[in-house]
């Protein structure tokens, strides 16, 4: 078996339209096993449609799509046996208890009664739901519901997990809990396909990020690679008075001045060498600097630059 060289997800030329509306306009994706791949995009960019196609919920109009080595159209059953999906809208049974929901999944995965019971209890503990295990899901908070949703997905020990905006609408604490869960899963060798509109989330979790805009992938790479593609790194210097500000500007030349905050923005790649040069320039002339901070472009800059040129130009 060539299991380990084979990518967990591979799509080429993936297209999908609903009527006249083109949602996915030729997408190529490759996700190696045991990694986190994040699909980043605004609402309506086509993220959910991509997940639906990869998870066999809907068929592609064109393209070759393989998940866990199987074609999503011709071998949908084999794909379903290998994947787990946690969607944007929680797929839990509200009338049942958390434990019932997990037992239901265990039964559908044909675990024995004893195994199912053990698995349910284990997951309830792992996802911090043990106290609410026997309460109806309708009484759960958003974060608990999302954790249960993911726990249900894990009952069948899937090799590839799709998480469609798993933290949308969660409070910061629940979001961090969810991130930790994802990291633990990846440590266990699972492949994660994550969609999100939070750049911070992609930055935290993903090995590789693809930016989806209007049905096309406009950039792909690691978070660092994407950030490097965008200019905007600078050092910000703040001074005690206008004299210092004036003096510094004479020395540094091409810097943009913020009069009301007595600060200068000096373009910089943030490397130690450029900082050293900058500091000695100021030091030689005995210019007092109150505060120095280094700014690298974050994924927000990348996202805005790639998906909407108007917005960036306006900034």
């Amino acid at each position: 078996m060539t299991t380990h060289s084979r990518p967990a997800i591979a799509a080429t030329g993936l297209r999908k339209s609903f009527g006249d509306h083109v949602v996915l306009d030729g997408i190529d994706l490759t996700v190696p096993q045991g990694t986190v791949f994040s699909l980043l995009g605004a609402n309506g960019a086509g993220k959910t449609t991509t997940v639906k196609i990869l998870s066999t919920l809907i068929g592609p109009d064109a393209g070759d799509v393989r998940v866990a080595g199987h074609d999503v159209v011709r071998e949908a059953d084999a794909v379903r046996a290998a994947i787990g999906v946690t969607g944007q809208f929680s797929a839990v049974d509200n009338l049942l208890t958390g434990r019932d929901n997990l037992r239901l999944m265990a039964d559908l995965h044909h675990l024995t009664r004893a195994d199912g019971k053990r698995r349910a209890t284990g997951l309830l503990d792992q996802f911090d739901l043990a106290d609410a295990a026997d309460k109806p899901v309708s009484t759960y908070s958003g974060g608990m519901r999302r954790r249960l949703d993911l726990a249900m997905t894990l009952v069948g020990s899937p090799r590839v997990i799709f998480l469609d905006e798993p933290t949308t609408g969660l409070d910061p604490r629940s979001r961090r809990d969810m991130w930790q869960i994802v990291r633990d899963l990846v440590a266990g060798g699972v492949t994660i396909f994550l969609t999100t509109q939070y750049l911070e989330e992609a930055d935290e979790l993903a090995d590789r990020i693809a930016v989806l805009d209007k049905g096309r992938i406009v950039a792909e790479g690691t978070a660092e690679e994407l950030k490097r593609r965008i200019p905007g790194g600078h050092v910000r210097l703040r001074f005690a008075d206008t004299d210092g500000l004036d003096a510094a500007q004479r020395v540094l030349g091409q810097a943009s001045r913020e009069n009301d905050t007595l600060a200068l923005r000096v373009p910089s790649d943030g490397s130690l060498r450029s900082l050293k040069t900058l500091i000695s320039l100021l030091d030689d002339r005995a210019i007092e600097v109150d505060e120095l901070s280094v700014h690298t472009p974050d994924l927000d800059d990348v996202f805005l630059a790639l998906t909407d040129t108007r917005k960036v130009a306006a900034q």
Binding site: T56, L57, G87
Partner: peptide, 13 residues
Amino acid sequence: AEGIIARFRTMHI
């Protein structure tokens, strides 16, 4: 209306 049917559809059952 709830997401549970979507879950069943993506499962091997």
